[in-house]
Design a protein around this nucleic acid. Structure first.
Length: 489
RNA sequence: GGUCUUGUGGCCGAGGGGCUAGGCAGCGGUCUGCAAAACCGUGUACAGCGGUUCGAAUCCGCUCGAGACCUCCA
């Protein structure tokens, strides 16, 4: 490859060459889901974005430790139940143990991720399993004089922190004075010195069921400490990449920087990466807006705004067709287009295995590999990679039709291109129907030979009946000079 | 109101001072019993108005539109 990996760092708002702190090791932390609901399309974006980062860094030979947390405690709700944990609320409504709810949605999240071919992270720590570490982190911030205790709760003193020229707002581009004047007044804020201060520890109200003992009160950790405590525990006080959705930029990641700096004197990582949002009718798909479609609904088609079910690979391909820092607008039409495009790509992969080599190549296939590396090195530009893969697709199809020729070496090069980029790095795999594939293969072989016989006898009623009936159950037949092939849609 | 981002052909989306992005859809053809697929050909696209420049979709300014964050959110 001719270029080096460049990563867009939110902190500097520029692309920077990637240099790991301890070559060849790379530490990466990504904010995972809060497990109080089914994962929706929005959740698939960071998962797939950082799956690509994870896969590509490993492909480049780095030894990556990828930590992605599960938030099963600590997020406050902004409604009548203020102060009550989201997970606890759901549990009370359904008469379940909070941990039962968390476990249930963790399980479905894992299933969804597996379907999307998202590799599991190296470590997936639970917030509830790291209360002690969070208490220790809070204590260190108190010792540094950057937090105060108020009525059993502990708050981060943003003004004091900022006064030490640490610049609260360096990541999100905010100015503390503006924050102090624009932060909305909410109920239960009288414990804070300033509205911009954020909770490190919250004293639990009597009805709050998720609670732990601490030096300050029986309660639960605040919104942002878990990531600071767990990333430091598994990746050290400074690591390479911290990722998450753009909506977490402020206040979550800004506060993480403040907490880390309070503990160690510097921010937690070298590179901050943020994926953009998936929109629906131009608006962010999110829980609070109620305009989200869960991944399960995509897979089974049971949602009013979906015309049909879509496979997990269509979703993955759809997401990879846009750059991770751009918004991506969902619509049936866009997804249908992704579905067809993906099918064409996978069809070419299949065709590639059956190509007959020639003595010379009539087209230029050898430069594609380098171009794909260049695209990935340019801040993981997957849409550009895909455009080159379609160029390869055109060459493959034309060669099959006898309009272009390829040498054995070039065919091998294209096979390597597909194996490396499509399968390994982009993580796109052919849709598989079941474990009975080989049986299906045999049955189809028989059906196609009967149909061929019928065609030769000009018994088109029979041949069409076979084709149409198969089409109804999702198997499409393609006829060519060499015979008929079939695909599962 | 503050901070940040953004406006590309019917749709989704790259790119980003002079070089065809790509996919889907459409149209015309080749092939085919028919269809599908595949292949070939096919598009006055860069919100508007000014400015800088030999040259702007790309840089700058203004106008208009959209979004994100400021409150849990991927």
């Amino acid at each position: 490859m001719s270029s080096e990996l460049q990563i867009f760092n939110t902190l500097s708002r520029t692309k920077e060459g990637f240099k790991p702190l301890n070559h060849p090791f790379v530490g990466m932390y990504v904010c995972g889901p809060t497990v109080y609901g089914h994962a929706h399309l929005g959740h698939a974006r960071p998962a797939i974005t950082f799956d690509i980062v994870f896969r590509y860094l490993k492909h480049l030979g780095y030894k990556v430790r990828y930590v992605r947390n599960i938030t099963d405690v600590g997020h406050l709700e902004n409604d009548a139940d203020a102060g009550e944990d989201k997970i606890a609320k759901k549990a009370r409504l359904e008469h379940l143990e909070p941990m039962e709810v968390a476990q249930y949605f963790t399980n479905t999240y894992h299933k969804n991720m597996e379907d999307l071919n998202v590799l599991p992270p190296s470590i997936e720590p639970l917030a509830s399993g790291h209360i002690i570490e969070q208490i220790e982190t809070i204590q260190k911030i108190l010792d540094a004089g950057l937090a105060y205790i108020s009525n059993g709760s502990v708050y981060f003193d943003v003004k004091k922190y900022d006064a030490r020229t640490h610049q609260y707002g360096c990541l999100s581009g905010r100015v503390l004075e503006d924050l102090l004047s624009t932060t909305r007044e909410l109920a239960g804020q009288e414990e804070k010195h300033n509205t911009a201060d954020f909770a490190l520890w919250k004293k639990a109200s009597p009805e709050h069921i998720m609670r732990w003992k601490s030096p300050w009160s029986e309660g639960f950790p605040g919104w942002h400490v878990e990531c600071t405590a767990m990333s430091a525990k598994y990746l050290g006080e400074e690591f390479d990449i911290h990722g998450g959705g753009m909506d977490l930029l402020f206040p979550h990641h800004e506060s993480e920087i403040a907490q880390s700096t309070g503990v160690s004197g510097h921010g937690p990582c070298r590179y901050w990466m943020h994926n953009n949002m998936i929109t629906i009718n131009g608006q962010k798909m999110g829980k609070s807006l109620g305009n989200f479609i869960t991944l399960n609904e995509f897979f089974n088609g049971e949602h009013t705004s979906l015309e049909k079910a879509f496979t997990s690979m269509t979703i993955r391909f759809f997401i990879l067709q846009a750059h991770y820092r751009s918004t991506l607008d969902f619509s049936n039409e866009a997804l249908l287009a992704a579905e067809k495009g993906f099918a064409r790509l996978m069809e070419a992969y299949k065709t590639l295995q059956t190509l007959t080599p020639s003595a010379s190549s009539s087209c230029e296939a050898s430069s594609l590999k380098g171009k794909c590396y260049d695209a990935l090195n340019d801040d993981f530009n997957t849409p550009i990679v895909i455009s080159y893969l379609f160029e390869a697709t055109r060459i493959i199809n034309a060669t099959k039709d006898g309009k272009e020729t390829l040498t054995v070496a070039d065919i091998d090069l294209l096979k390597e291109l597909f194996n490396t980029f499509v399968l390994d790095i982009l993580g796109l795999v052919p849709n598989t129907s079941s474990d009975n594939t080989h049986i299906l293969d045999k049955i189809m072989e028989i059906l196609l030979s009967i149909r061929q016989q019928a065609k030769e006898n000009k018994d088109y009623a029979t041949s069409d009946k076979i084709r149409n009936t198969l089409s109804e159950i999702g198997i499409s037949i393609k006829d060519s000079k060499e015979g008929s092939t079939w695909t599962l849609s």
